[in-house]
């Protein structure tokens, strides 16, 4: 890889811009898409690889090219700087998620409690969520148990393309939550997207174990692991 290609690839990654690296396997010639003047069939392959977030090969003018997508990190937005969040933040960071914790209660939302590998927002959840604008590479988990904080975040998350929305609370708590959110105008289809009770059923007891169950469910949904994700 030439210094120029490396610098441009790293610049795109630092700016969280999706970019595909194309390598001609016969001689190591490389192109970036977007960025370089990439022949149309290879540009299409690059777009497809970025959309699928999976590398692939493409044939062009008798040579095989390796098409390697580099998407920005998946994001996890955690509403509630609670005990479970303290366990969830470092685990999510360890599997490569960029984590943001939202909690307007400044006594909870501190770097001392959450560490320095997380972005912290002390805005109200509706404003914070609107600013974060969850996309198809974002998971959202609400953990506060407090309708004043969880509900506004869920309203934004459920109307966004977020790939995962989970909410902590017992079945009874969740039934009440569904009633409130329906009252607020969310559709049945939107409400059905909430994973609750949150996390895979692994009999989790401690905060760290609950964090494992949540993160396992996020991964299962992301990877399309079918029943495991329900």
């Amino acid at each position: 890889m030439t210094p120029d290609t490396l610098a441009r690839l790293e610049a795109a990654r630092a700016a969280k811009r999706p970019v595909a690296l194309l390598t001609r396997l016969t001689d190591g010639a490389q192109l970036l898409h977007p960025g370089d003047d990439v022949p149309a069939p290879l540009a299409e392959a690059a777009q497809a690889a970025l959309a699928a977030d999976a590398a692939r090969s493409a044939e062009h003018e008798g040579a095989t090219w390796f098409v390697h997508p580099h998407n920005p990190p998946l994001r996890l937005v955690v509403v509630g700087a609670v005990h479970i969040a303290q366990a969830l933040v470092p685990m999510a960071a360890a599997i490569g998620y960029a984590v943001t914790v939202v909690d307007p209660r400044r006594a909870f939302a501190t770097e001392e409690r959450l560490g320095d590998r997380v972005a912290i927002s002390t805005d109200w959840p509706d404003e914070a969520m609107a600013a974060l604008a969850p996309d198809a590479r974002t998971a959202v988990v609400t953990l506060t148990h407090d309708p004043k904080l969880d509900d506004p975040a869920l309203e934004v998350a459920l109307r966004s393309p977020a790939f995962y929305v989970g909410s902590l609370g017992s079945r009874r708590t969740h039934a009440k939550r569904l009633a409130r959110l329906a009252e607020a105008g969310l559709t049945e289809a939107e409400l059905a997207r909430i994973h609750a009770p949150v996390g895979l059923d692994i009999g989790a007891v401690t905060a760290a174990e609950i964090a494992v169950s949540i993160l396992a469910q996020v991964v299962a949904v992301r990877r399309g692991a079918g029943k495991a994700a329900s």
Binding site: L9, R13, P90, A93, A94, I95, G96
Partner: peptide, 11 residues
């Protein structure tokens, strides 16, 4: 190496 760099070998 930070643990969140486990998969980001290019970095």
């Amino acid at each position: 190496m930070q643990t969140d760099k486990v998969e980001d070998i290019l970095a």
